[in-house]
């Protein structure tokens, strides 16, 4: 997924010389390709994220198409107010790339883990929020972002979890993508890194469960979610993000209003990571490993059906 990002951002910049890439001194080696082919479109803005967003705003006001790269713990979290006032307020076409979303930086602790970025950004007016699950969705999201007439936040989490699609995506902004067929009463909706997990879990234990991926969290195709809720007996939402105001909340809000159905939101509970360890270890600490998720879904299905 990271090599796809490197390749795609270079392709986008080569095709459009108004594209500039700003980074807050992050992305070592990730932009080697970009710097080789588009050296004049690369700006290392230093360890100064607030200024970087303001500079991106100024560049966009003057006609450039800035992509701003950072870790999602910093872009958007550290600079939320700059995003609100300098970018979103004017619907400036700036694309914010938040790498390492969720628990990716498991060994580095709370400062580098981003479990609140969807919640924070989805409440900002004029801002779109994307969360691709694999390299195909990433390409799809980057294509959407360069076409966007407003500010975009694209979060990408653990990048090496494997593909969930087998071909390039042909979909519209906000569309959910069915990644596993199933006619059973349980439907699993997932976003980002948890989409691969959702498919694996369905394969292991819930063979008739349909699984959908949501590469766009805002806007989102509400009609698709409502149609799913009308058909399903229970819905499970999976995300590597806080259960408060994340993707699961988006689904729960829509379902509650339009087609009340039981919804289980699985994500990170209201707490920070307590320990240091591998990515897989921290998933387990937060109950996001396949064993824990399977058990929670099984319990939920039992009381729902």
């Amino acid at each position: 997924m990271r090599s796809t990002f490197s390749k795609e951002i270079t392709r986008i910049a080569q095709a459009n010389d108004s594209v500039v890439l700003l980074t807050g001194d992050h992305g070592y080696a990730l932009f080697d390709e970009f710097r080789k082919h588009c050296p004049n479109q690369y700006i290392n803005a230093g360890i100064a994220e607030q200024n970087m967003i303001g500079v991106a705003a100024g560049l966009a006001k003057a006609g450039f198409r800035p992509f701003v790269y950072g870790l999602s713990a910093f872009v958007p979290i550290r600079v939320l107010e700059q995003i609100k006032i300098d970018l979103a307020h004017d619907s400036l076409p700036v694309v914010l790339i938040g790498d390492g979303a969720g628990l990716v930086y498991s060994h580095l602790g709370t400062s580098h883990q981003a479990i609140e970025d969807i919640a924070a950004t989805r409440a900002l007016a004029n801002l779109q929020v994307y969360s691709p699950a694999d390299r195909y969705e990433l390409t799809h999201c980057l294509d959407l972002s360069i076409k966007s007439q407003t500010t975009v936040y694209l979060r990408f989490g653990k990048a090496d979890r494997g593909d969930v699609h087998d071909r390039p995506i042909d979909a519209h902004l906000g569309d959910l993508l069915k990644v596993r067929e199933g006619a059973g009463p349980l439907v699993i909706l997932a976003t980002g890194s948890m989409t691969r997990t959702a498919i694996d879990i369905a394969d292991q234990e819930f063979s008739d469960a349909e699984v959908w991926s949501a590469p766009c969290i805002k806007p989102i195709n509400e009609l698709t979610i409502i149609a799913i809720a009308r058909r399903a007996s229970c819905i499970v939402c999976l995300e590597e993000h806080s259960i408060h105001a994340g993707f699961g909340s988006v689904v729960a809000e829509l379902v509650a209003q339009h087609a009340p159905t039981r919804v289980l939101r699985i994500g990170i509970e209201d707490r920070f990571s307590e320990t240091c360890g591998s990515y897989e270890y921290l998933l387990q600490e937060h109950g996001l490993d396949t064993f824990s998720i399977r058990k929670r879904i099984a319990d939920f299905v039992q009381v729902s059906l």
Binding site: N51, M52, G54, A57, G58, L59, A60, F64, Q82
Partner: peptide
């Protein structure tokens, strides 16, 4: 200030 810096860079 920073938005101005961005305009000046443009």
């Amino acid at each position: 200030f920073s938005v101005g810096v961005g305009l000046a860079l443009a």
